[in-house]
Design a protein around this nucleic acid. Structure first.
Lengths: 143, 143
DNA sequence: AATTATTACTTTTGTTTCGCAAGCAAAAAT
DNA sequence: ATTTTTGCTTGCGAAACAAAAGTAATAATT
């Protein structure tokens, strides 16, 4: 498969893939809220339109960021799971959360509290690792 | 000014602001390539359309992520500079660079080398701080 | 002072993407 | 056998994107 990038810059190339709000929202939903089926995503607070969600899930699968499987004995329900490549985005999700807590809270009056923010800030690497291990253990158990 | 957010989630709220490729590309150009004028941005490899660039710069200013000033004795050329709120996005830029080096390089054959990647990975926090201090010192000198 | 070049956009236009709402078909549930 | 659910697709209008050309103020040059 041939991918087209805007230029040679690594950061711009990453943004050619990730620079779409729904892409990172979906990853966040999978990583921190254990969403894994199409219905799970459609029922999230974000209210993603079904045509948008469908196309973004295909796109993420195409880039190897998520996989699409089915439950044994259930042909209908698809399970969308983060790959290691997808889990490698955890640090970005964590940094977005920290930035938001410090810079967006004043603008979004209804933004919910983040009790885990102090733990995140004190040891980002540990928090990232914990999220990733948590996710791995949950998706292994579901196999 | 009243901002409209998609929901209460901090991460989704951050993405309501940042989840646009050009937003982060512009910040990257300012932080790592010292771009600060409209012409600087239009001459970047990314080749951002001028109407898009203009509207994104206004938007970043509106959110307090950048400021727009002029050189003394020069009414024409505007200087766009990152605010502290904008500089607080440095960890996200660094994480994008690391993710890209590990996950995108295989897809973008023309992606250029990142000699600084090993330094980034070995001490992210130090690298972030160095980028930020570098930026601050350069923009103070320009005042 | 007059003229030319540059900069920072705006405008026009066509294309693409978004998102709402409804529809569809296969599979699961009853 | 029938109904419900799930995972989408489709149609359509609105919004955003982007190319290309245009504009006006300012700076530079003559």
């Amino acid at each position: 498969m041939e991918y087209k990038f805007r230029c040679e810059c690594p950061i711009t190339s990453a943004l050619d893939i990730l620079g779409d709000k729904w892409i990172l929202v979906i990853i966040k939903l999978m990583l921190t809220q254990d969403k894994k089926t199409f219905k799970d995503f459609t029922e999230s607070d974000e209210a993603i339109a079904t045509n948008i969600l469908s196309s973004k899930l295909k796109y993420l699968e195409e880039f190897g960021i998520i996989t699409k499987t089915q439950l044994p004995g259930n042909k209908k329900t698809n399970l969308y799971l983060l790959t290691e490549k997808g889990l490698a985005l955890t640090p970005i999700i964590v940094e977005l959360s920290i930035w938001s807590d410090e810079n967006v809270r004043a603008l979004n009056k209804i933004m919910k509290e983040s009790p885990e923010i102090e733990i995140m800030k004190s040891d980002k690497a540990a928090f990232v690792k914990m999220l990733q291990e948590n996710y791995r253990s949950k998706t292994r158990l579901n196999k």
